[in-house]
Design a protein around this nucleic acid. Sequence first.
DNA 1: GCGCGTTCTGTACGCGCGTACAGAACGCGC
DNA 2: GCGCGTTCTGTACGCGCGTACAGAACGCGC
Lengths: 344, 344
Amino acid sequence: MSRPTRTDVARYARVSEATVSRALSGRVDLAITKDTRARVLAAAEALGYRPNPTAQALAAGRTQIIGLWMCLDYSRYRAQVVDRMQRLLRQSDYCMAITDIEEEIGQHHSFTRASRVPVDGLIAFDTPTAGSIFARDSRTEHPCFVSMGAYWDPHTHFVGVDLYAGAVEAVEHLVSTGRKRIAFLHLAAQDPGSAKARYDAYCDVLQQAGLETQFILAPAISVADAHRSVREYLQARSGVDAIFCLNDDLALGAHQAITALGMQVGGEIALVGCDGIEETELLPCPITTLRQPVEEMCRLAWQFLQTCMEDPSGPLQQRILKPRLILRASSDPASARQKGGDAS
Amino acid sequence: MSRPTRTDVARYARVSEATVSRALSGRVDLAITKDTRARVLAAAEALGYRPNPTAQALAAGRTQIIGLWMCLDYSRYRAQVVDRMQRLLRQSDYCMAITDIEEEIGQHHSFTRASRVPVDGLIAFDTPTAGSIFARDSRTEHPCFVSMGAYWDPHTHFVGVDLYAGAVEAVEHLVSTGRKRIAFLHLAAQDPGSAKARYDAYCDVLQQAGLETQFILAPAISVADAHRSVREYLQARSGVDAIFCLNDDLALGAHQAITALGMQVGGEIALVGCDGIEETELLPCPITTLRQPVEEMCRLAWQFLQTCMEDPSGPLQQRILKPRLILRASSDPASARQKGGDAS
DNA sequence: GCGCGTTCTGTACGCGCGTACAGAACGCGC
DNA sequence: GCGCGTTCTGTACGCGCGTACAGAACGCGC
C-alpha cells in the first residue's frame, strides 16, 4: 500500500532494477532497446512510480537544489530577484528553495542548522548576517555559498552593488540641479548595513558642497510610514527643496506626502529614490531612482556558484556592480520638460 | 579531504557507528554513558562533522521539511503568512522551504515534478492551479497536501476564507451608510479566482439594493497603477461616492488618487479595501478593510497537515473562515468622529 | 564468588537509488 | 558455423544514515 519503488517496477516489467534506472534516467547515452524502455515506462506508469528524490540525491551525491536565503518582505525589488533567479536556475535544470532566513540564523546561531533543506549550493541575498556566519562556520559547512546584494564580506564569493558610488551620483545630481536643502529619508531603526553606504554618500556629498544635512526618519519601510513621516516633517519646517530616499518604497510615500501637502514633486521639492522598482515610473510625476542591476547580479551570482560547485577550492570570486541613475521628472528639469519624461 | 562521515567520527572516538548516531541523536531515551557521549561529541567537534540530512532522511523516512508553495509578489499580506507559518513550523521542529510555484507547475504540468525538494508535506497558499493539479495527480503523488487561501478545491484538505461573505458585508456596509454610486476597483486582467467572489458579492449586493454597478480597472496590483486608474476614472466622470477595492494595495492607490484630486476620503468618497494589511491603518484617514484571519488560517492548515501526515487515509478536512470587517474613517461616520477612529 | 536484572555497546541490515563491471545477446563478415 | 566487435542487460555494491537485535559489561544482593 506504500509508495512503489524501483523494485516494484522491475518486477512488473520483468527486468532488473538497473534497467529500470536506465530507462527512466532520460539519458540517451545509455544503451537500451526501444522495447525494454517502453516496457519499463509502461510499468512505471501503471504503478504510478516516481523516483524517490532523497534516494537519488544520496546515491548521486547531489540534490539539484539551490537554496536562496533572503528576507521575504514587502518589496518589489526582492520579488524581481526571486523571479530572475528562478528562471536562471530552471534553465540549468536546478530547482530553487527559498528560505526566509535571518530569524532562523538568529535562532540557531549556525549556518547549516538554520535549514535542513539539502542543497548543492546557497545564494544569500541581502542578508546582513549570513555571510559572516558562513565565513565563521566555513570549515564545517559544505555547500558552496555565494552572497549577493548589499552586505559585503571579504571571505565569501560575492556579487554586490556599489551603493555608495550610486548614492554619490544621485546626491550630486540633486546638488548640480541647484538644490540646497536636501533631506535624507531613512529608517529610524534597523538595517544599518544597506543604509550605511547611502547615508555616508549623502553626508559626504553635502559636506563637499558645503550644504547642511537633515534627516527624516520613517519608523519602517512602507509607503504609509514614509507618507506620515514626511508629511509631519514638512509641516513642521519649511525650506526643504529635495529629499533623497533610502529606497523606492519610501520615495513613493514621500511623493504621496508632498502631493497631499499641495506641493509639486520636481517643483518645490525634488525627489530621488533607490532600487528602481517599476512603480516609480508609473506615477503622474515619475521618480528619479537608482536602478539595481538585478539581471546582471543574478547572472553573476549563479555563474560564481556554478564555478564554486565545480571546484570548491577555486579562487575567491567577487564583483561589484554599479547601480544606474535613471533621471526622471521628480528631480530632472530636462526630463520634466518632456511629457512624462523618463531617461531610461 | 571530503566531508567527514559517521565512520570517521566512530574511528576517531573509538566507538561503533551506532554509538555515534546515538550520542548525536539528542534523544534522552537512548542509553549511553556520559563518558562515551562526551568522547563522541568531542570527535564530531574536532572533525567538524555534521550528519548528512539526505542520508538521515532516507534512513528515517522523513525529511522534517514542509514545503510552502505560493506566489511571491509585492504583498504585505503574503509576507504575513510566510512569517506566521514559519514560526508555527519551527515550534514543531520542522523546517520550511518556500517555492514560487505557479510558473513551475505551468512549466512541468505535474505536481511533484515542479519541485525536487523532498518534503514531508506541502501547504499551498493562494495558488489557483496547485489544488486541482494535486487532485489530478494524487494517485501518484505522495506528500500530504493542504491548500490554503482563496482557491477552494473539493478534493483536497483546505483552509479557506469566505471571500464572498466578507465582501457582502463590506458592500452592505457601504450601502447602509447611504452610498449610492459605489464603484468596484479591480483588475483588468488575470486573477479571476480570488477576484470572482468579491466581484459576485459586489454585484449581488448592489442589485439587491437597486443600485447600478460601475467598474474601475487597474492594469496590475500596485499602488501606482491603482492611483492612476482611479484618478483618470474620477476625472472623466463625477458622482462616484464610494469605491470598493479588490485588495488593500489598490485601496492605497485609490486613497492617494482621491486625495490628489482634492477630495476627502470618507467624505465625498468612501473607501473599503480587502485583506487587512497594516498600511491601511497608518494613513491620515485610515481605510476600512476586510481583515484576513492569517493567524487562524495558518494554524488550521498546519493542524490539518499534521493530521494528514499521521494518517494519510483520514477524512477530508475543510474549513472556511470569515474575514472580519474593520470599520475605519474611510467609510464609517462613527469611526471618523473619533480621532483616527479604528474599531479593531 | 555467583546469579540475575539492567544498562550499555556493537553487529548487521535496510532505506531507494546510481552506476561500475561482468557477462550475455546480437549482428556481421567470412 | 565461427570469430569478434558492439550493444544490451544483470549482478553487486556504495551513498550515509537509523535502528532492531544480540550480546557484553555492569551493579547489586546474597
